[in-house]
Design a protein around this nucleic acid. Structure first.
Length: 812
RNA sequence: GCCGAAGUGGCGGAAUUGGCAGACGCGCACGACUCAAACUCGUGUGCCUUCGGGCAUGUGGGUUCGAUUCCCACCUUCGGCACCA
């Protein structure tokens, strides 16, 4: 009987005692760093964690058998709000709550039978870890990659903290963690200069990442090329704008500033001041209730001020309107109503002049009074002073050159990507290692004094405010520079900061001379295969790339990218096809499944039941198929056959062929992470082996080879049963130290093939012929076949097409 | 509105990238075992059929001897972005 509850714990213990999966530097062997995204210690592993981790584990095991020195580490992204909420609601200290959860999740991970090397575990909330998170912050600070500024920022009123732009999602601009719509606040916060790396982040040439992630990141960064142009105002100030259409500059008939633009007050005339202030107040209120979505009708107010169009010296009015956003570009635009739909609508509503300066080729001349919509297409420049007549394809370049010659602007590139806001007004995070001194300003904590540890004796307030702010003593300190009284920064860092470098801490989690041991780095980095959810495409996966590149420029890391290959798994939905959630009551618990089926069955089912990158709804009867398969594996190898001996040469050759064909496809599918076809291939081979068993193949040399190869292929998928059967069939422990077998291409070759015979593309016959059949012979056989004769009716075919080894198509 | 992914039996999915559509598994039906049920094993299972065959990979076209695969248009679903200048 197959009893997973007996064999699984037994082997897990054995492997652990023997240190089977310890990863050590070995210059003799090629290394392979297999990494899967680390979990947040929420308390329980759910089936989604299993789905992410157990196929990744199987892949790592496969690589190990292939002869690579594989490191497959695990850790916990242990800072974060849920721990703090538990503290507020139940009075448990986040430290206690977190370590309790980690203990449970570690136990669950071990029950999965993974090859995780637990000696390399890293926990981001440990002072020995966040000491280095803080150290990285200081390196960035010292090299002007971290800075502090006041800005309108996104604030989650539920989580009581600011968020990075990447952590605000959806049309309603809600908090990535809790779903609450964010509000704008003006606060002084810490930022990292991610925008310095915008262009480099768009370059994926050195890495094998899914197109989808590349597209998401590319769209997120949203690079646009254009020009920045300076308009002088009559009030004396310069207004800089960004435009992607420098060729339309002669058509700029007014300017629009965002209501929050700092120059609004300067350009506003006294008689317009009242209307302007009212509109600004309205826009500010609207900001909270999403002014973009609520009101598509253009609104705005004239400031009374004028600017001069730098190319034609026209005097153009300056307006403010909420369709111009302070957060993009310079917060001011030149409005070209003839060629921009938004400007067009605005001009029509407020009766502003529309001047056509682009004429698309081959279309009848555009007349501004008759326009029903803006004409955004490229075309010949018209009505554009010295550049009139410039053809569409040259317009952009010539206009930019002209602006530069005149000294009123230059070519410019703009991005949507913002600098990364890393300040969080929360307790359970790594404190920002800065001391604010009234004399010296923001002073970094000396490296020798790291980590700035979180105080444990804190009080939780139901207001949701960070207890660091109200701690009686913690924040008061002395300035490291002048020795005067000073205060600590009470904000902590975004937890995405911790997870931006965790793959480096795994290299040497106990190292205390730096964030990682350079010897380990030189051997293991970069990560060879990284697996995890696509939901991190524009958060963690941008941050960690930025982090790596910034560290490279500081001489801390090497190479341009931290992770060479990325693969994303999909999501396991509930049986009702909905996202799993406690409130829906459709959550599948891995602990329960292991109790009933054992880990090997769960692992096999998770690999088999869907395309890994897509995921699928759970199916509780589907998993029955997986345990049936493993029971059948057990019986096939251990149960004596009903027929002993007597298999024909042919039967044995057939068996051997199937074994090597399966080995070929399984090897390929492991390489490409097509887990479902690995399992189906093994199922198919097992069926074939049982056929061979009934004709007396059991015990023959070919059978024994099949058995060996079968168990070796099974080992990465179902490590426990494979080990048990390996030992029971008389092999030496451990199967997991065996090399991956080689395909015998000769054995895998088909001797006979089914030649498909088509007439006009329709199958009319199937012939069993030698695989090496010659073209003439194949065609002749096809023409003579019964099925064809019936359709030929004495006529001569027009054409006969032969595809070697596959088919003959007779065209009538 | 823009960008991207995906549409194949009752279900999850397969098809060496242009060559037998539906592998493998679930489910279902029938049979064996059983007093009976479950388990297990066996057989069958895309649809229609006048049993010759015909129709089938979201829809409609196209390229080709041949299309799930390539091209064009459209529909649906799911993700992302969105007054981005």
């Amino acid at each position: 009987m197959y009893k997973p509850d007996e064999i699984e714990p037994k082997w897990q213990q054995q492997w652990e005692e023997d240190g089977l999966y310890h990863a050590e530097i070995d210059p003799e062997k090629p290394k392979f760093y297999a990494l899967t995204m680390l979990p947040y210690p929420s308390g329980d592993l759910h089936i989604g964690h299993w789905y992410a981790m157990s196929p990744s584990d199987a892949r790592a095991r496969f690589k190990r058998m292939q002869g690579f020195n594989v490191m497959f580490p695990m850790g916990f992204d242990a800072f974060g709000l849920p721990a703090e909420n538990a503290a507020i609601q139940r009075g448990i200290h986040p430290q206690v709550w977190t370590s309790r959860n980690i203990e449970n999740m570690r136990r669950q991970l071990k029950s999965m039978g993974t090859m995780i090397d637990w000696r390399r575990e890293a926990i981001s909330a440990d002072p020995s870890y966040y000491r280095w998170t803080q150290w990285f912050f200081l390196q960035f600070f010292n090299h002007d990659l971290a800075y502090r500024k006041e800005a309108p920022v996104d604030f989650c009123p539920h989580c009581n903290t600011t968020l990075a732009r990447e952590q605000v999602h959806g049309e309603d601009r809600h908090c990535e963690r809790c779903g609450t719509p964010v509000i704008k606040k003006h606060l002084t916060q810490w930022f990292f200069r991610t925008t310095n790396y915008a262009d480099e982040l768009l370059d994926f040439s050195g890495i094998d990442w899914p197109d989808q992630v590349r597209t998401l990141q590319t769209n997120w960064i949203n690079r646009s090329e254009g020009a920045s142009v300076v308009f002088k105002t009559e009030a004396g100030d310069d207004i800089e704008v960004f435009t992607t259409r420098p060729d339309t500059l002669w058509g700029a008939t007014f300017m629009v500033l965002a209501p929050e633009h700092p120059l609004v007050a300067q350009v506003t005339t006294p008689d317009q001041a009242g209307a302007i202030t009212d509109y600004q107040a309205q826009a500010e209120r609207m900001g909270d209730i999403q002014r973009e979505t609520l009101d598509r009708e253009k609104t705005g107010v004239f400031t009374g001020g004028y600017a001069i169009n730098p190319v034609n010296e026209e005097r153009i009015p300056i307006w403010i309107a909420d369709y111009v956003m302070m957060g993009y570009g310079t917060g001011a635009i030149m409005a070209v109503p003839a060629h921009d739909q938004r400007d067009f609508e605005f001009a029509r509503k407020f009766d502003l002049p529309i001047v056509v300066v682009i004429q698309p080729p081959g279309e009848k001349p555009i007349v501004s009074d008759e326009m029903e919509a803006a004409v955004p297409a490229a075309g010949e420049m018209v009505n554009s002073g010295p550049l009139t007549g410039t053809p569409g394809e040259d317009a952009f370049a010539r206009a930019t050159a002209y602006i530069e010659e005149k000294g009123v602007g230059q070519g410019a590139v703009n991005y949507r990507l913002r600098d990364w806001l890393i300040s969080r007004q929360r307790y359970w995070g790594a404190p920002i290692p800065i001391i604010h001194c009234p004399e010296c300003g923001a002073v970094p904590v000396p490296e020798a004094e790291l980590p700035v540890e979180l105080p444990m004796d804190v009080e939780w307030l139901p207001t949701g405010e960070s207890p660091l702010k109200l701690h009686p003593t913690w924040r008061f300190t002395r300035c490291p520079k002048c020795g005067g009284e000073a205060e600590r920064e009470t904000d902590t860092m975004d937890t995405f900061m911790c997870s931006s470098w965790y793959h480096l801490r795994y290299l040497s989690p106990d190292y205390d001379q730096g964030p990682f041991d350079p010897r380990e780095y030189d051997y293991w980095m970069p990560v060879d295969t990284y697996t995890g959810g696509i939901e991190h495409a524009t958060m963690h996966l941008i941050y960690t790339r930025f982090f790596h590149k910034a560290c490279r420029d500081l001489g801390i890391t090497k190479g341009d990218e931290p992770m060479l290959q990325l693969r994303n798994q999909g999501m396991v939905l509930g049986e009702d096809h909905e996202k799993m959630s406690k409130s829906r009551g459709n959550v599948v618990s891995p602990d329960d499944l292991i109790e009933v089926y054992g880990a090997d069955t769960v692992r096999a089912y998770l690999m088999f039941f869907a395309r890994w990158e897509l995921g699928a709804p759970w199916n509780s009867s589907g998993i029955e198929g997986s345990i049936r398969w493993l029971r059948k594996v057990w019986f096939t190898f251990l149960e004596p056959p009903e027929v002993a001996g007597g298999a024909s040469e042919d039967d044995l050759r057939k068996l051997r062929r199937k074994v090597h064909q399966t080995l070929r496809s399984v090897t390929h599918d492991f390489e490409t992470l097509n887990f479902n076809t690995i399992v189906s291939g093994l199922m198919e081979l097992l069926n074939e082996m049982n056929v061979a068993k009934t004709v007396g193949a059991f015990g023959s040399p070919d059978w024994l080879e099949a058995e060996n190869l079968y168990l070796l292929m099974l080992a990465p998928v179902c490590p426990h049963i494979a080990e048990e059967l390996w030992v029971r069939t008389g092999h030496e422990y451990s199967i997991h130290n065996q090399p991956w077998p080689q395909v015998d291409e000769e054995a895998a070759k088909e001797e006979q093939i089914t030649l498909i015979v088509q007439v006009n593309g329709k199958v009319r016959d199937r012939l069993t012929v030698s695989a090496t059949i010659a073209e003439a012979e194949a065609k002749a056989a096809a023409l003579e076949s019964e099925g064809v004769q019936a359709h030929l009716a004495g006529k001569t075919p027009k054409k006969v097409i032969y595809v070697p080894g596959r088919l003959v198509n007779i065209v009538m």
